[in-house]
Structure formats: structure tokens, C-alpha cells
Design a protein around this nucleic acid. Sequence first.
DNA 1: GATAATCTTGACTAATTTGCTTGGGAATGT
DNA 2: ACATTCCCAAGCAAATTAGTCAAGATTATC
Lengths: 167, 167
Amino acid sequence: MKLTTKGRYAVTAMLDLSLHYGEGPITLADIAQRQGISLSYLEQLFSRLRKRSLVASVRGPGGGYSLGRGADEIFVGEVISAVDENIDTTRCNGAHNCQNNERCLTHDLWSDLSNQIYGYLNKISLQDLMDRQAVREVADRQDHPNQEQPGLDVSSLVDGSGDLAGA
Amino acid sequence: MKLTTKGRYAVTAMLDLSLHYGEGPITLADIAQRQGISLSYLEQLFSRLRKRSLVASVRGPGGGYSLGRGADEIFVGEVISAVDENIDTTRCNGAHNCQNNERCLTHDLWSDLSNQIYGYLNKISLQDLMDRQAVREVADRQDHPNQEQPGLDVSSLVDGSGDLAGA
DNA sequence: GATAATCTTGACTAATTTGCTTGGGAATGT
DNA sequence: ACATTCCCAAGCAAATTAGTCAAGATTATC
């Protein structure tokens, strides 16, 4: 289990896709601009995401990428391990051909933790993240009712259209 | 939150210290040999661990390092963030001065996840890892009573000293 | 006090990974 | 045809990892 900025980019891009689900294929150029990631780097990441069928692609004009499954069926752990995919085999591979028992034991302790983290991340779906965020925003608004919501509350002051009620 | 081999080395070394708790100070040379990490690299890692008082040091002959607190008071998240300690400030720092709202939103989603992972790791102590490992080993032995336990069950076959009963 | 063991610090370096660029394709809607 | 998009591979600069080397500081022991 590894967790670096590379994985963050991948998860961020997948979240971007999730947020635009239903708008048809999303081009990498769009994601690149929105998330501030270089287009070619995204291409590399999506090449790996596609191999794991975490995304589906449509070529040609009007083409782009969309989620390979529903946002509630794609888990953060999958996304991260898709782009990490290293042939590392951590020194003491298999954890049973060590030099001495002591070393094996500590390695077991680590791999135990690693498995825990991985299991944890494989329970969090993209949908979960979006849901929790939505919940949190509502909670924040209730906690700070006086606080300015730049670009949002202005319109509700100008007219009582209430187009934010459902958001 | 970052999770790399660097953090793994740090956690592994701390686990090594935990396993030898009560034997007085442990030298880095010992850890280096047992865990297969270079001495100088350990020195760098322990320099940071010491600054966070996760370890205590004793100089001179017979000196070495020991845990700064009890193994049940040191959490994996602390150890990892101690050695990562980067001045990164992820592009969109503070998450509130972004170019557009869209980008901010996705970054919030990521930082939400990052906080979750961090919170998770900060609940797992070194003691927890050792305990769970011990529990798992017992469970394994009960699940596979016939299976050879190399280096362990031989002695119990030879004599009935039962020195493993308490382990 | 001399000596050896050990931590402490800093500068330097090789190897690897990240993040990106460039330059070409291949597919496909218009 | 043409523009738009995915696809792919080579290469490359910057950062990070992992390690070496060298010089000290502290302290137990002889």
C-alpha cells in the first residue's frame, strides 16, 4: 500500500468524473484544466485506470472518459493501487523467507497494518466521499448561518427564487 | 497524508524498539542489522522521531534509543507524519483560494479523505499492532493445528517445557 | 585521562519516482 | 477530409529516497 501525490491525482480525477456523471464523456483536457494536472500526465494515469476498467473511453470528437461503473462501486483503494502498480516486492517478499525470525515478525507487523489500511480504503467509494462532503457542507452552513457564501448567497439576497433550496 | 516506504521504515524501526522494550537502550546498529536498513538512513529517521519525542536517546557506550512513551501511547499516524514532514502545501493551500469553485470542491473531497486516513492511522498504536499480531498467530494455530510451525513447535516436541505458553 | 561506543549533524551522491514534454499515431464524429 | 479525441512510447528535469562519508559530542569503562 502506497499513498502519494500520484494517487491523489488519480482520485481527484476520478472524483471530477464522478461530479460530471451523466454529462456524457468528459475529455481529459477538461479535467486537466479544472484540476490543474497536465494533460499528458492524466493520459498516463488514465491508461492504467482503463486497464482496470475503472474508466471507459470513447474516441473521436465528443468523446472522452466516463466512470467504468457507478460511483458507489468504485473504491478509493482500487484507484490508488491501479496507478501505483509497482513491481516492488518489498525486499522480504512473501514474508516467509527472511534471514531470521525477528525480522520476519516485524515485517508481519507491517504487512498487517498495510492490509488494514488497504481494507479501510477499499470500503470508501467515490460516492461515499461525495455524500459525506455534501453532508458536511450542510452541517457547515447550519453551524455558521451568518457567514458569507461567496457567489452563492448574493443571488438569494437579490431575489427570493430559492434555487438553492434543493442543493 | 503520505504513505511511502520511508514511513514503512520508520514504523518498522519503531516496532523493533517496541519488541525490545525493557531491554534498555537499543542501538541503531542493532535495528539496522535486524531490519535491513542502512545505519545512516536510520540516523536521519530517528533524528526526526526524536524531535517529536517519539523516541528517547542515551549517548555513550551502552546507549541507544528507546520509545519516548509507552507503545500504547504512540500511534502509527504520528510516526509516519514525523518522518514525512514536508513543506508541501499542496498547490491549493488552505483550499479556499482556488481559481474556481469546481476545483476547490474536488480538493475538498480529497482533503476529506486524507483526514479520514490520518484519523484512522492515529487510532492504531504500536501496542495494537503487536497485540493483533499475537491474536492472529494464536488464531492461525487454532485454525491449522496440524501445520508445522518452523522453529517453534520443534522445541515443544522435544521437551514439554512449555516456554511458549505465555507468548 | 585515554579509549571506545554511541548518538548527532551536515554535506554529498546514486538510484528511483514524479510529473511533465514531445512527438507521433489510431479512431471517429461532422 | 478534417478536427477532435484517445492512445502510446521515448525522454527528461525536479524531487524524493536511500545511502555514504566525515566530523563532531557525550559518556561508560578501563
